[in-house]
Simulated assay, not measured.
Amino acid sequence: MPQKLIQKIKSEQVDDGSDKWTYRASGNVLELLVLPQFVHNKKAFRCSVISAGQALASLKAQYNKAGNELFIQTFPNIENPKVICSIRVDDSGYSNTDSIPEAITLETKSHSIDDFLLETAEKFHLNTQSAYLSDEVLTMIGIDTHFDHTYLLVSRLDNPFTWLKAGYWKESIIQYMKLHEPTRKYFLYHFSNHREEFKKHTDLNNGTYLQGILCY
């Protein structure tokens, strides 16, 4: 069972959101769940799903590295939105590949960080957009260091499935930086606060949703 591994991954997360979801095991199935007090709070719900998405991507990558597969069903019960996903080790040779994050493949480095950002966002049906923002705006989300590059993670939809994919994207970036840019300083944030206020300082239109930011 991946129960011990998911606990280890969860305990190592530092972003806002890891304290808003939990897990429970029943037989050979492990579920990731939004804590009840956050289910009807959209901002907190979003953060919990992104955080769980990061954990899910990390879990799958570690299982794949060991040569094992997981069967993962995301949001399996539309009437019970607190259940983010159900997980079991795939011992049947079948995996539902439409509903699980693709494995994080980092052995071959992309031509540049920019290429990797774009490729990874597109894989998860998201997009990246370069941005030029004042120091005052960046201070709003805690950035007090100058970075040469700023990218926004954006989407055309803004729902739990989108947030889960934003988590997959975040984990991919974290693992890429660890492997290929271990000495580079960066800032990665999924807007647990100030999302709408920050967007007003960008050129994003009303049909585009802000999901994250990466500065390096």
Rank of each mutant, 00 (worst) to 15 (best):
Q3N: 09
K4M: 10
L5W: 00
L5D: 06
I6D: 07
I9L: 03
D16W: 12
Y23N: 10
R24T: 12
A25W: 02
A25Y: 07
S26H: 04
L30R: 00
L33Y: 02
L35G: 07
L35H: 03
Q37I: 02
F38S: 11
H40Q: 14
K42F: 10
K42P: 15
K42T: 11
R46C: 08
C47I: 05
S48K: 04
S48M: 03
V49R: 03
I50H: 12
S51C: 01
G53N: 01
A57Y: 00
A57K: 00
K60I: 06
A61W: 12
K65E: 15
E69R: 10
I72Q: 02
Q73F: 06
Q73M: 11
T74F: 02
V83A: 08
I84Y: 08
I84R: 10
R88A: 05
V89E: 15
D90M: 06
G93F: 09
Y94F: 15
Y94E: 14
S95V: 15
T97G: 05
D98L: 10
P101Q: 05
E102D: 14
E102I: 09
I104F: 05
E107W: 04
T108E: 15
T108M: 12
S110L: 07
S110P: 04
H111W: 13
I113Y: 13
I113A: 11
D115H: 15
D115P: 07
D115E: 14
L118S: 14
E119V: 14
K123D: 15
H125W: 11
L126A: 04
S130L: 04
S130G: 08
L133N: 02
L133C: 02
D135H: 06
E136Y: 09
E136Q: 11
V137Q: 01
T139C: 04
M140H: 00
M140A: 06
M140W: 02
I141F: 01
G142N: 07
G142E: 06
I143M: 12
D144K: 07
D144N: 14
F147L: 07
D148W: 00
D148Q: 14
T150I: 15
L152C: 11
D158P: 01
F161C: 03
T162V: 08
W163I: 09
W163N: 05
L164D: 01
A166R: 02
W169G: 09
W169L: 09
K170Q: 12
S172A: 14
I173H: 03
I173M: 11
M177S: 12
M177C: 10
M177V: 13
P182V: 05
T183F: 12
R184W: 03
R184K: 15
F187A: 02
L188M: 04
L188A: 00
F191Y: 04
R195E: 07
K199P: 04
K200I: 11
T202A: 06
D203E: 11
L204I: 04
N205G: 10
N205L: 06
G207L: 06
T208D: 04
L210P: 01
Q211F: 02
Q211V: 06
Q211S: 09
Q211T: 05
I213V: 03
C215W: 07
